[in-house]
Amino acid sequence: MESLLTDLGRHSEYVIAAYVMTAVIIGVMVLAIRLDQKKQERDLKELEALGLRRRSQKKD
């Protein structure tokens, strides 16, 4: 960590800003998609619990 800090010289705030924003965007993408997945899976379970099936779905 120390070597990293000494390495960062002039303009380091710009580099940090770029990497932080990259992390934020990646985080937002992952989080949004995971939350969406949870919601869709919950909705599907709910509907299946009601006994609904898609036309193509086989009876099990």
Binding site: G9, R10, H11, Y14, V15
Partner: peptide, 8 residues
């Protein structure tokens, strides 16, 4: 030339 900013 670019120093540290090249990491961006």
């Amino acid at each position: 030339q670019q120093g540290i900013t090249v990491r961006i």
